[in-house]
Design a protein around this nucleic acid. Sequence first.
DNA 1: CGGCAACCTATCAGTTCTGCTAGCACCCTA
DNA 2: TAGGGTGCTAGCAGAACTGATAGGTTGCCG
Lengths: 244, 244
Amino acid sequence: MNEHVVDDFITALQGATTVEGARDLFTKTLQQLEVGHYAYLGLRFRGSGPRGRPFFITTYPQPWVEHYDGNNYLQIDPVMLEAPSRSTPMHWGTREHRKTVTPRQKKFLNEAAEMGLCQGSAIPIHAAGGEFGLVSVAIDATPRQFTALMRAHQHQLHLLSLYYHAHVAENFISNESPKVSVTSRERECLLWSALGKSSWDISEILNISEATVNFHMQNAMRKLEVYSRPHAIVKAVMMGIINP
Amino acid sequence: MNEHVVDDFITALQGATTVEGARDLFTKTLQQLEVGHYAYLGLRFRGSGPRGRPFFITTYPQPWVEHYDGNNYLQIDPVMLEAPSRSTPMHWGTREHRKTVTPRQKKFLNEAAEMGLCQGSAIPIHAAGGEFGLVSVAIDATPRQFTALMRAHQHQLHLLSLYYHAHVAENFISNESPKVSVTSRERECLLWSALGKSSWDISEILNISEATVNFHMQNAMRKLEVYSRPHAIVKAVMMGIINP
DNA sequence: CGGCAACCTATCAGTTCTGCTAGCACCCTA
DNA sequence: TAGGGTGCTAGCAGAACTGATAGGTTGCCG
C-alpha cells in the first residue's frame, strides 16, 4: 500500500521551495503513515554558528507544548537527553523504555500520556558538519497497535526524517561560511594546538621558531575573526578546517 | 521478495558478536540486493581519540585496492572528497556524476570502470559523537540496469549501512570514555572559553573572581588529562561535555 | 627584469594562562 | 554532632600567549 511513500516524498520535496511547503508535505506524508503527532527539532546547523537558533516544528497539542516549555522539560525529557547520543531510532514511553528512566522522567511520561502522547519513536538525525536534528513521533494507541505500526513504518519514518532534515538544512538555513582561507602552515599550527601542543612544542615539530608559530596562530585567529586560541580552534573544527 | 531484508539484517546483527560475523552478514545481505562489490570505511569513531585507526572492509577486487593505495587515490577519489560533506547518498560514475568531476577524476573513474567498478552508490553515515562512516557499493551493469537496481534497493542499502555502522561502532570499537565527571562550574567555564571568552570575561559573566575561573579550568584540564585550554576544549567537545 | 602579492620567518612588550596552595560552605554518614 | 568528601572561592610566581612590527623568500605578471 505505501510502497513508494519515501520516493514520492523525496520527489515532492524537490519542489518545496518554502519552509511551509516542506513542512506541510512532511506533515501530510507522516499522516499517511498514521502518525498522530510529531515534533521536528533542527539543532546545530552548519554555518549557523554556535548557539544558532533551533528550527522547531511540531503538531503536538498546544497545551502540551506550553506545559513543556513552562516547566523547562527540555532538561528532563528522556528523549532529548538520550537521542542525541544514539545513532539509531529509539522507542519511548513503552513498557520497556519506562524501566530505564528516573522517577521524575516517569512522571513526565505520565503527564505526556494524559495529553494523548502515550508512546512513540524518536529518530536522531546526524548529518554532515556535525548537524543534528530530531524527529519524535507520538502514537496514541495501545502498545500492541504501536508495535504493529512501528513494524510496518519504522524504516519509512527513519528515511523520511533523514531526507526532510537534509532538505531543511540545505535550503532553509543560511549555511554560507565566508570561505576562510587559511594557509597550510596556519592549519598545521591550529591542528597541533588542538591536540594540546604549546607554541614551543609546535616550533619543535615544524622546525621553526616559537615566534613564528605565534605569528601563524595570530593570522589564523584574525582570519577566523576570534581573539583566543580556544575560540579559533573550536571555530576551525566547526568549519571543518581541521579534524582533530 | 525482499520485504524484510532490513529487519532480518537488524535481528541477525544482534547475534553477530565478532567483527567477522558482522562483516559476513553484511556481505551476504548486500549480495541479496545484487550488489557486486562494496567498501565500508569507518572513520572518526567516538572515543577512539584523534587520528584513530580507520576501520576498513571491502570486497573490491584486490588489484584495484592495491592500485588505489599505490597511487594515493584517497586524495583524488571524488567519492571520498564529496561524500563526507553530504547527508544523503550519492551516485558515482554515472553520466550525470561525470559532468561534475575534474579531468583527473574522470581518468580515475575510467580506471575503476576497467576493473568492473563502473558506477555505484555512496552512502555517507554520520552518527553520534561526530562519527563518520562510508559505504560505497559498485554495480557492474549498464546505466539502465543500475537505475532500476537503485530504484529498487537504494533505501534498503541506506538503512543497512546505517545499522551496520552503528553496530560496528558500538561493539567492535573501543569507545569507553573513562566517564569524566566535570562539575557545572567547570562546564560553564569550558563553554565560555570555547566561545572565545578570557578568564576575566568569564569571571564577569559568572560573577566570580578571575582566579576562581582559572581554578575551575585547571580542574577541568586535570580531569580531561590535558595541559592547555585549547586541548581541554577540543576534548570536551569530542566527548560531548559541551556543545558550542 | 622590476614590481607586486602572498606567505614564511622572526622579535619584543604587555597581557593571559598554568600550577600550586589554602580557606569556606555544603551534604552525607556514622 | 563530628568527621570526611566534594565543590566553590581566592591569591601568587613563572610560563605561555597576544598583538604589533619588520625582513626574507617565492612565484606571478606586465
